[in-house]
Simulated assay, not measured.
Amino acid sequence: MTHAEERLDDEVLDDAGSDEAGEALTAVLPAELAGQRLDKALAPLFPDLSRARLQALIAEGRLSAEGQPVTDASRKAKAGTYVLLVPPPIPADPEPEAIPLTVLYEDAHLIVVDKPAGMAAHPAPGSLTGTLVNALLHHCGDSLSGVGGVARPGIVHRLDKDTSGVMVAAKSDAAHKGLSALFATHDIDRLYIALTRGAPSPPAGTITTQLGRSPGDRKKMAVLRSGGREAVTHYRVEAAFGPQEKPLAARVACRLETGRTHQIRVHMASKGSPCLGDPVYGTGQPAAAVREAIQAAGLKRQALHAAVLGFVHPITGEALRFETPLPEDMAALQKSLEAL
């Protein structure tokens, strides 16, 4: 796996449903092409796409074979029907926008910010403006690293659009490469705070699964029996709210060992304790008192905050660690939950 592949998988596919206006291309792979590398076998069936573009789309989980997601372009091709979802094009050159940023740290090589909920990391269909990239282009000007490409300058990892918290972006190419390497080898301290429906059991543990596109809904990620990519989350219930024998909600600290798309949201849901307010993975209704607390707090997104980001500065070697408190909506919700 390349550093770029690992980097762009980190914790979010911003606005996962935003590519719904894309095009679904269907092709039938004949038996005589079976046995070749998958990308090579499919290339002549999708003549409008370069092989590199095809490989990238497969890596993003946009290919399915007989209804099952396929993410390995190097696997041997099998005869059958393939569907490739091609997202619509987005503007190649994001414009600088004078969006206020909460800057936690900045030097010539990198910048660390506290991203608010509602801000996408970079332009994508459905979020073409108002993104962190637009704000960074205005704040950093020409110093922003271009290694991430014109649409994602400086971006080395991502948070969900509606997940708040600490993010780092590269201002120099050297820092971009160094940070990408740290994320690829998981040499990053990442701690998230989730407010969940009920409390996961046991109250502390490690969740290890394979994560990939949901076979039934490609806008969602899911725990898969086979395929996908390994995802590891260490969690601990810091506080449980409501009756001790059956908590109505909890504050859960989640430390990432890997950084897969929607990892914490899927893992908490898989334990029967999804993030409160999660519109995608929050199946099941919270208790009435918790619903009232959510409404009173004004929470209109998943209750998930990237509270801690720690890493070794890729240029200076300095150990850096940044921690931010819960934003207003989650802090208000936690206060109400403590009164249950």
Rank of each mutant, 00 (worst) to 15 (best):
E257K: 14
S143E: 15
S143V: 14
H313D: 14
G272A: 09
D14R: 14
Y192P: 01
T2N: 13
G126T: 11
D10S: 14
H267S: 00
A124H: 05
A16K: 08
I315R: 06
V168L: 12
P47L: 10
A175W: 04
A331T: 03
A296F: 07
D10M: 13
S336Y: 06
G228M: 03
T206W: 05
G317P: 03
K219P: 00
P215A: 07
D48A: 15
R53A: 15
L132E: 08
V83E: 01
H122Y: 10
M1Q: 13
A303S: 13
D278S: 08
Q302E: 13
E257T: 13
A293D: 06
V266W: 09
A199D: 03
H122Q: 08
A59D: 13
A297M: 02
R321C: 12
L42R: 00
A121N: 10
S74L: 05
H109G: 03
D15K: 14
L182P: 07
K220R: 15
G242P: 05
P286Q: 02
A151Q: 15
V86G: 09
P200A: 01
H186F: 13
G227E: 04
G198E: 04
V156D: 08
Y82K: 00
A43L: 02
G80D: 00
D107F: 11
T206Q: 09
A24N: 09
D217M: 03
V150D: 14
G178T: 08
P327M: 01
D142R: 15
A170W: 12
A296S: 08
L182Q: 14
A135G: 09
P274S: 01
R152C: 00
I111L: 13
H267Y: 06
A117F: 06
I58M: 08
Q285M: 12
P327A: 03
A117D: 02
S172D: 04
Y235I: 04
V166H: 01
G198H: 13
A250E: 02
L333S: 06
A240Y: 12
V112P: 11
V112E: 01
M167P: 01
A170V: 08
E60S: 08
S336K: 14
T131P: 05
E230V: 14
H313A: 08
E20T: 15
I315S: 04
F322K: 02
H305T: 10
H3S: 13
L42P: 00
